[in-house]
Every structure is written in C-alpha cells, then in structure tokens.
Simulated scan of single mutants.
Amino acid sequence: MKLTIVQWNMTHMLTQSEGYDVISRAVLMLVTLLLFFLFIFFVGTLLSIFFTTPYIQENARYILFAHILINDTLYLTLGILCLFSILSNVYFPTPLCFLILAVIAASFRVTPYNLAVMSLERYIAICFPLRHLEFCTAKRAKSAIAVIWIVGFSPSIADFVTIACSVERSFFSIAVICGHSMLIISPLQNVIRSFAHFLSFSLVALIILFTYVKVMLVARRLGSRQSSALKAARTVLLHVFQLILCMVSFISTVLETTIPGYNSDLRIVGFLIFTYLPRFLSPLIYGIRDEVFRKYIGKFYHTVFSPFHRLIYEIKHGVFHKCIRKQ
C-alpha cells in the first residue's frame, strides 16, 4: 500500500512538472513571437523609408543596408520556423528541410559579407572620393549582393553533394525533424561548415580592419574632429560591432552540443539572447545612428502616432472639463 502511494505521488509530481513545462514553453514561445513582431515593425519602418525615398534608393550604402534588413528578417523567420517545429515535433520532407537549412546557413554568412562590402564602400568614399560615384553605384551594389549570395550558398552546395554521395536515394523520401544535427551524415560536413565559417569571418574581419586603419589615417591627416573621414571610421567601427554580434550566434550552437539536458526552455532562451537580440540590435543601432534614417524615422513615427496622441489628449482634456463642470 505504501508502495502504491509513493508511485501515485511520483506520477502526480511528474504530471505537474510536465504541466509546468508546457506552460513555460507556451509563454516563452508567445514572448518570442511578440519580440519577432516588434522586430518586423521596426524593420518594416526602415524598409518603408527606403522604398519611398528616391534619394535613398539610389545610394549604394543604403541599398546594402536594406539588404541586411531583408536578410536578417529572412534569417529570423526561418529560424523561428525551425525552432517551433523542433519544439512541436513537426516533421518535414528531407529535401524541404535541407532547403530551409541551406537558406538559413547562407543568410547567416551573407550578413558579414554585406558588412565587409559596406566597409569597402566607406573606404572608397574617403580614400578615393573622386571615384566614389563611379565605383559605388546602385547597379554595382546590386551586383555585389548577387555575388554575396552565390558565395554564401557555396558551402551549402558542397554540403548537399556530400550528403548525396553518402546516402541512398531513399534518404530523400523520408521526413525528419528539421534541425542541423538531423542532416549530419558525414564528418566531412562539419569540416566544410567549420572551414567556411572560419574563412568567412577571418576574411571579413581583415577587410573591416584594413578599411578602418586606412580611413583613420585619412582622418588624422585631415585633423578635424567633424571630418567625414572620422565619421566614416566610426561607421566602420560600428561594422566591427555588428560582426561581433553576428558571431554571438555561435554561442547558441556550442551550448546545444556541450550542455547535457538542453531542454526546450533553454533552447528558446538561447535563441532569444544569442540569435534574436544581435539581429535586432544591429539594424536598430545603425538605423538610429544614421542621420538620414533618423530624420525620416522621426517623421514617420510622428505621422503614425500623432493621431493617437491627439485622441488621448482630447479624451483627457474632455474628461478634465467634465470633472470641472460636475464640481
């Protein structure tokens, strides 16, 4: 009888803990969605400014910045899709899962490539000002974006070739939970990914460091604290910070592979801290720091929220007058 009571208590405690896990997971998923919609709202504001301002659309730097916004939106959207599907045990056809993971991996690599190109644009603007309009055109910026995506997809293509050579054709007809670990068939895939990430971030870091040093030399030569060269150097330094934010995403992958019992709650928290937060801070800091975007953001929010402020003012004003009349 005592054994039965103990078993019942254990079953009751396990049921309660499972209930708490479900509730905490649902709360964290809801918080993730709300923060994602906040990101979409802010990025949508910046993109609406870009697509409604002809001057900005013809500027190579702003074209590259808009590309980062679109790329980060794609990365977070697919990342949340994979995260929620893993937590809900949703199965995808293997080809579709590989395509989603390939796009996520490519968009992850595209952001630092884009930062390198933006740093080179600032380098040309300061060190070769007379040829800036010749080199940094809208058409060449779009061509650079196309090259960036081709380079970004190259490791994924090598990954697909490795999988195709290591498994039978029937492998592509099954359904899997869409996570990176599910499609690791050969150790060569980890070697390709590690080499691609190391080479990419090393080259990007060297390019940004080179442009920063060159621009700072020009700024010191000019000797003015308000010179365009010094502003460009600060912009390149901001790209260094953005690159560091991109690398923070690696921490989430390391935690998943090293921490035993990495449950769903930790997975969501890790996604919010190491994936969502860096992608949100990067455009937020750059968009607010840029004078052109800051001016248009102020006008945009004033236009959007002024009717609400006016309505709140009128409601308060009307209630105040009613209270005075009653007294």
Rank of each mutant, 00 (worst) to 15 (best):
M1F: 15
K2H: 13
T4R: 14
I5W: 15
I5S: 14
W8Q: 15
N9S: 14
M10P: 07
M10D: 14
L14P: 04
S17H: 08
E18D: 06
I23F: 15
V31F: 15
T32C: 14
L33N: 07
L34P: 11
F36A: 02
F37Q: 10
F39L: 07
F42E: 01
F42P: 03
T45N: 10
S48M: 06
S48I: 05
S48R: 13
F50L: 04
F50W: 03
T53D: 13
P54H: 09
R61F: 14
R61W: 12
H67P: 11
I68P: 07
L69G: 07
L69P: 08
L69T: 07
T73A: 13
L74C: 14
L74I: 14
Y75S: 07
L78Q: 13
C82L: 15
L83E: 12
L87C: 06
L87Q: 12
S88N: 15
T94D: 01
P95F: 03
C97E: 04
I100H: 06
A102F: 05
V103L: 12
A106G: 06
A106E: 03
S107Q: 01
T111M: 01
P112Q: 02
S119M: 03
E121R: 12
R122G: 05
F128Q: 14
F128Y: 15
E134F: 12
S143D: 02
A144M: 07
A146Y: 05
V147R: 07
I148E: 01
F153V: 07
F153S: 06
P155R: 05
S156W: 02
D159E: 03
D159C: 04
F160L: 06
V161R: 04
T162L: 04
I163E: 02
V167W: 02
S170D: 03
F171C: 01
F172Y: 02
S173M: 03
I177A: 09
G179Y: 12
L183H: 11
L188Y: 07
Q189D: 04
Q189E: 06
I192V: 11
R193M: 15
H197Q: 13
H197P: 05
H197S: 13
H197F: 14
H197R: 13
F198A: 08
L199P: 06
F201S: 04
S202W: 04
S202R: 05
L203P: 10
V204A: 03
A205S: 10
L206P: 02
I208G: 01
L209I: 00
L209Q: 00
V213W: 00
V213D: 04
M216W: 10
A219Q: 09
A219M: 09
R221H: 13
G223W: 06
S224E: 11
S224N: 09
S224V: 10
Q226K: 09
K231L: 11
T235M: 00
V236T: 00
V240I: 03
Q242T: 00
L243K: 00
L245D: 01
C246R: 01
C246K: 01
F250N: 02
T253C: 06
V254G: 10
L255N: 12
I259G: 08
P260I: 06
N263M: 03
N263Y: 07
D265E: 14
F271Q: 11
P278F: 09
R279E: 06
F280G: 13
L281Q: 15
L284F: 15
D290P: 11
V292A: 11
Y296A: 08
K299H: 10
K299D: 09
K299P: 04
H302Y: 10
F308P: 02
H309F: 12
R310K: 08
R310V: 02
H317F: 11
F320C: 10
H321R: 12
